[in-house]
């Protein structure tokens, strides 16, 4: 097992997170079972104070999770220097069977924690704090996803094998049979890109008629097709190379780190679109703001990826 300083930092913080989230978990269970707004018992007063601690812990974890996610990608990038065949983070992540799962879990947990925090903000704004039970139940469930992520991450780093040869992103993100992602490449580019823009149009429609169900559904579609179309189509225009599909190489300085910006806007847009809308069903008055933020970030994303394509065509007169 390789123990680079970066891995040690991540594992140490994982340990801290596990410790604190376990406390938050136990407290959330207590809150769910015993919370009674109208009670004047000592237990209720204690619970009110403990609900603060839960909020504090989750804020702490979330504030660190976001930069840590980027740091994880960076760590995988540096590890590519010692894992044979890997040229960037993509190869390292894929060198372990569940590497991709780990990445998806990390993303999912960002959404889950973000959702909890959004709910929490709405909750404490009200004098009655009406969502304590919902918050606690939600965290009780999200906790298991979080633990799964940490366990997977520990297993990931301990099973990294420097002598096993892995594929680089060129092979991985291609139609070659060796790649586990080759099924993506079975679909035609024009189909995927059409679905991508269609889901965006659906989102605009949902926004204009202010229908949360349509908006939510379109965001889910948008998230999926945005990622797939980025890998299949748009990334090639960023790299100006028809065979380069890697979503990780976008983060490198050669491309001015445009990947960070793209992923940030995509995350924020879909986060407000999905989580924001869900929360609005519970709490009133937030839906407009959520939709506006979401449509803003998603539009920025669409503009940038489209811009790369259009600029390329204008510069060169041909498509890739």
């Amino acid at each position: 097992m390789t123990l680079t300083p970066e891995i040690i930092a991540i594992l140490m913080l994982d340990g801290l997170f596990l410790f604190f989230s376990s406390i938050a978990f136990v407290l959330s269970l207590k809150l769910y079972w015993y919370w009674d707004r109208d009670a004047t018992s000592l237990l209720q007063y204690r619970l009110e104070k403990e609900s603060y601690l839960v909020g504090l812990i989750i804020k702490y974890i979330f504030m660190l999770k976001v930069p840590l996610f980027l740091f994880f990608i960076y760590t995988c990038d540096t590890l590519s220097g010692i894992i044979t065949g890997a040229m960037c983070a993509a190869g390292v992540v894929n060198s372990v069977d569940f590497g991709l799962f780990l990445l998806l879990f990390k993303l999912l947990n960002l959404y889950l924690f973000g959702f909890w925090l959004l709910l929490h903000v709405r909750d404490v704004e009200s004098e009655l704090q009406p969502y304590i039970r919902q918050k606690s139940l939600f965290f009780g469930i999200a906790f298991f996803f979080f633990v799964a992520e940490i366990v997977l991450e520990i297993l990931f780093f301990t099973s990294l094998n420097i002598s096993k040869i892995v594929s680089c992103c060129g092979t991985l993100f291609s139609a070659s049979t060796q790649s586990s992602l080759s099924f993506l490449f079975l679909m035609e580019n024009w189909m995927i890109v059409s679905f991508f823009y269609a889901s965006f149009v659906l989102m605009l429609v949902g926004f204009m008629v202010k229908n949360s169900a349509v908006y939510l559904f379109s965001n889910l579609l948008f998230l999926f097709f945005a990622i797939v179309s980025l890998i299949l189509f748009f990334s090639t225009y960023v790299y100006e190379l028809p065979t380069h599909h890697c979503p990780f190489c976008l983060l490198q300085s050669d491309y001015y780190g445009v990947g960070y910006f793209l992923y940030a806007t995509l995350f924020l847009g879909t986060f407000y679109g999905i989580c924001g809308v869900v929360i609005s069903t519970l709490t009133q008055g937030f839906i407009l703001r959520a939709m506006r933020l979401s449509i803003f970030f998603n539009s920025v994303y669409v503009l940038i990826v489209s811009a790369y394509v259009v600029v390329y065509f204008l510069k060169n007169g041909v498509w890739l």
């Binding site: 707004r37 109208d38 004047t40 007063y45 009110e48 104070k49 603060y52 004098e127 704090q129």
Partner: peptide, 22 residues
């Protein structure tokens, strides 16, 4: 502090039932 039972109303607000930040 909060009463064990009973109500405390100040300027129209039932402060015995108010959560801490409020």
């Amino acid at each position: 502090s909060k009463p064990t039972t009973g109500d405390v109303v100040v300027d129209g607000k039932r402060i015995s039932k108010l959560m801490e930040p409020f």
